[in-house]
Simulated scan of single mutants.
Amino acid sequence: MINNFKKSVLAASIVAFSTTVIAQESLRLGHYFPAEDFRGKTAQYFADAVDQELFDIQVYPSESLVRGRDGFMATARGSVDIYSLFGGYAVGSVDLMRIFTIPFPPDEFTDSKLLEFANDERTLDILDEEFERSNVKLLGFINSSGQTTVFLADSIDSLEDLRGKRIRGVGGYTDPALQDLGSSVVFMSAAEQFLQLQTGGVDGVITTDSSYANLGLSEVAPVMMDGSIVRTPYPLIMNKRKWDRLSSDQQEALMTAAAETVAWSIENFEEESERLGEKVRSEASEVYALSDEDLDQASQIRNKYLQQFSDEYGDEGERLVELFNEYL
């Protein structure tokens, strides 16, 4: 009878152990985009691509869990497990992310080129250690901002007309570039843009075509500047302590899903970008094309901050600038 009791205990222990091994890990994935936004769809794609036997991922869109600008620190603290973040929001904690905020990128630096550069193993090797110092694991760069430009309440005739205007910035070198042009930089979340434009809190905003279309900003900012002021990737980040507690199989599953999401995003974003571009141009009442003089000024500003980045961040900065130029 004692032997039977021992067998029962052993059998129960095996069942319990097996249950522990296969139990799903619950994770909260936050982002600040509407669910129907392509960036929201990309975050959902990742959640769906993860092995469902290993993870139960709940997605919280539209800042319903954490505000976009707070996403990095909230992930570092563990208030959220995973976050899809605009790269410019990470520069306060990861200085080297400024390479993705170089203002006025040339037209040949397309969304697909940006994601190739961001996910290049040489780029990731440099950035991984920087992220981990902030208790954040970088899973990959899963999306692009697409065309990100200035949308204004009133017409302009040149870049010089931005002088004196209050414009919503997006972080990194884009903000001092605005100041070089004589603008005042105002900080706000994506959700605040409509109200701030409507009430005159700002004269313009730097934002994506996607946000412009999905937030109905044409009602309050009918003027758009043609061409990107910045083109920035979206890192998918995870709380490092949470990552370290996962099994190797679970970690591999997350990295596999991230890689699949990057491939899906690259494959589908060009079509989405074209659709959004057409929609934005149809909604904006005026599109300002940069003059040759504007383009020269923009090029000088871009080169200024590439050089500044290289000077400020030593060998790693120089290497990232080399890689940036390689992808041009």
Results as ranks from 00 to 15, higher is better:
82 I>N: 08
111 D>C: 13
253 A>N: 05
165 K>F: 01
218 S>A: 15
174 T>H: 00
265 S>E: 00
126 I>M: 03
78 G>H: 04
294 D>R: 01
43 A>K: 04
107 D>R: 15
177 A>I: 00
88 G>I: 03
320 L>T: 02
199 T>Y: 06
27 L>A: 02
153 A>G: 15
289 A>G: 06
320 L>H: 02
37 D>G: 12
82 I>A: 11
290 L>Q: 09
149 T>C: 06
227 G>T: 08
152 L>P: 05
222 P>K: 10
276 L>K: 07
75 T>C: 05
268 N>P: 03
283 E>I: 01
180 D>C: 05
160 E>D: 12
211 S>R: 09
91 V>I: 13
240 K>F: 00
46 F>I: 08
65 L>W: 03
55 F>Q: 11
45 Y>Q: 12
22 I>V: 14
249 D>Q: 14
227 G>S: 13
34 P>I: 04
287 V>W: 02
244 D>N: 06
257 A>R: 01
24 Q>A: 13
164 G>F: 02
194 F>Y: 01
69 R>C: 08
289 A>P: 04
155 S>C: 11
320 L>N: 00
296 D>F: 03
160 E>Y: 05
251 Q>E: 15
105 P>V: 12
249 D>T: 13
75 T>P: 01
130 E>S: 00
153 A>P: 07
274 E>I: 12
145 S>C: 09
268 N>L: 08
198 Q>P: 03
81 D>I: 08
267 E>S: 06
260 E>R: 14
70 D>K: 12
21 V>H: 15
11 A>H: 07
311 D>K: 02
33 F>L: 13
313 Y>Q: 00
309 F>W: 02
30 G>A: 15
150 V>G: 12
78 G>M: 06
19 T>P: 04
282 S>I: 04
37 D>A: 11
210 S>F: 00
72 F>G: 01
